[in-house]
Design a binder for these strands. Sequence first.
DNA 1: TTGTTATTTCAGTAATTCCTGAAATAACGG
DNA 2: CCGTTATTTCAGGAATTACTGAAATAACAA
Lengths: 191, 191
Amino acid sequence: MSLSPLVETFVLHFGEMGGRWGVNRTVGQIYALLFLSDRPMNADEVVEALGISRSNVSMGLKELESWRLVKKKHLPRDRRDYFETPADVWDILRILAEERRKREIDPTLSMLRDVLMEPPATAQDAFAQTRMRDMHEMIELLTDWAEDVKRLSDTDIRNLLMLGSKVVKLLQVKSALVGMGRADSTPSGGA
Amino acid sequence: MSLSPLVETFVLHFGEMGGRWGVNRTVGQIYALLFLSDRPMNADEVVEALGISRSNVSMGLKELESWRLVKKKHLPRDRRDYFETPADVWDILRILAEERRKREIDPTLSMLRDVLMEPPATAQDAFAQTRMRDMHEMIELLTDWAEDVKRLSDTDIRNLLMLGSKVVKLLQVKSALVGMGRADSTPSGGA
DNA sequence: TTGTTATTTCAGTAATTCCTGAAATAACGG
DNA sequence: CCGTTATTTCAGGAATTACTGAAATAACAA
């Protein structure tokens, strides 16, 4: 691995983190490398930078493409494939959220809906279903919210985050002024 | 594995999901089993329910305790350890967020701060640092926000989520009324 | 077509992770 | 103390996952 110490630190760290996020070390490293690069890189450059086999790089890039975390790019007089990551970190977050939703959340929600349809055979099963119902409700709230926030501009998201839980206070004031007991009764909705 | 079909479906699903979340299949299964149980279970009952070795259960429970996702409980005339999960799904979410922050986010932030201190040796390094700075800023915004929201009551969180991005509209109205250009200038703060 | 370069696939192996049974430790009651 | 029961540790083996080199495929130029 022939990288500046700065880049190497970051790349190695993301290699480790990859493991905890369901991708293997080299996939994490490839992603980190491309993220820090100021220009698209081709597969051989990745091989050279990380000291792993050409075939491994090919597989890693393919996986990252399936996550939409890297995109192919072509340079004018060059037949080789070049790769780059989205530049904006908020875009990256959006993409990651969408992909994880598709791969983990949606199948889980669907599985929960299925088992919640079943008539409980025992008291145990009935109890299990109440827990599953709670979980289903929570996940649905979270994903609907995420879907909603996703459409905001970067700056709107930043403002929203910076406000944090102060929003709640604000809502309470609003409810008081308008004279409603609750903050809002219609869940989710357009941007 | 001798479980009702209902529970079995859920347990197997969480076993699979475990892999994507940095814990192994059996740890996911043990957690799922305890989550659905209407009473604390001891290790032998888990062995019986999941058909895995006693030692494996011991290790799995230990890992789940380290995540604070299960707690030991003792029954009156019984020397054995019993285990249960927090009942409230929002608590579970809070705990999960805290633990993942401690294990993944904080070390990443610390590593980013370190490399951002280094004077860049090359133009490449300088560019890499701008990317790292973006990432650092985003992660910090997100974690401060999460820290802030964590302190809210379940119902406040639910209201906040149900509002979704409508909050932004509301803020714009508020800014207009009060005559400020921005929503708020002091990031984070108490509940 | 043929030759050249780029990329992917995949069988075999290396490396890692997971699981088990056996042994050690601990926590009691008598 | 001893005997019993509960739990943990851990070395070794089983299972899984990751990686490589070689061969196949693809994409092009001449």
